[in-house]
């Protein structure tokens, strides 16, 4: 019963609030072969398009989770419903994660088909990078109550990866392109922690207002 409710809510939510974001994420993935070569790449080179582009799907899908309820009236209406608001957000977040994983998986398989040397590691690494960058946006949007600030933080973090490169240490999301995988476990931890903190922070913040 609860599950059925959740599925219906998820469907309606995806259709009304999120479809454009899903489509944008798909567009990002479709643009990769136009911007990068994906044929016959070795393991290191194959990581590059994945690590550079997948984080955009993270930003696009995870940052606007709270956007539909940014208007306080709508938020209060949603919050007054039986289904907890945090559950709605969590559901959206999980949907975002599912779409992100599906897109990453599909693209990794596509690269394999094109003769590149990709493995399960590539899939994990790219997905974790996407989740890490996305979770920065998610968390910032949650605590600032402003989606634009969320985008700002995520984009700044992404660009910092470009400029500072491996000087970011365990926060470096393009590490696989330079042959190192050990950062990924930290990034995964960051993604999980920030997502949880975002949900909790949101609860605290909305109660406060």
């Amino acid at each position: 019963m609860v599950f059925g409710c959740l599925v219906r809510a998820a469907y309606s939510d995806a259709k009304h609030n999120y479809l454009i974001h899903y489509l944008l994420a798909v567009a990002v993935v479709l643009s990769i072969p136009m911007l990068f070569g994906v044929n016959d790449l070795d393991a290191k080179a194959a990581a590059q398009p994945l690590e550079l582009m997948m984080p955009f799907t993270g930003i696009i899908l995870m940052t606007p989770v709270f956007m539909p309820e940014q208007d306080e009236n709508i938020r209060d209406t949603v919050r007054a419903k039986k289904m907890s608001y945090e559950l709605v957000c969590l559901m959206r977040l999980l949907m975002a994660a599912a779409v992100m994983l599906a897109l990453t998986g599909t693209f990794v398989l596509f690269m394999k088909y094109c003769g590149s040397d990709v493995s399960f590691r590539h899939f994990c690494g790219a997905a974790v990078s996407a989740a890490a960058v996305g979770s920065i946006g998610f968390f910032t949007a949650a605590v600032s109550d402003n989606t634009i600030v969320g985008y700002m933080a995520a984009v700044i973090y992404y660009v910092m990866n470009f400029l500072l490169k491996s000087r970011l240490g365990m926060f470096y999301v393009f590490s696989m392109s330079s042959g190192s995988f050990s950062e990924k476990k930290w990034l995964l931890l960051i993604a999980v922690l920030l997502s949880a903190a975002g949900l909790i922070g949101r609860r605290y913040r909305t109660n406060m207002m």
Binding site: F36, N39, D40, Q48
Partner: peptide
Amino acid sequence: PLGFYKAVK
């Protein structure tokens, strides 16, 4: 093509 390495065959 975009500042990133691409080996063309």
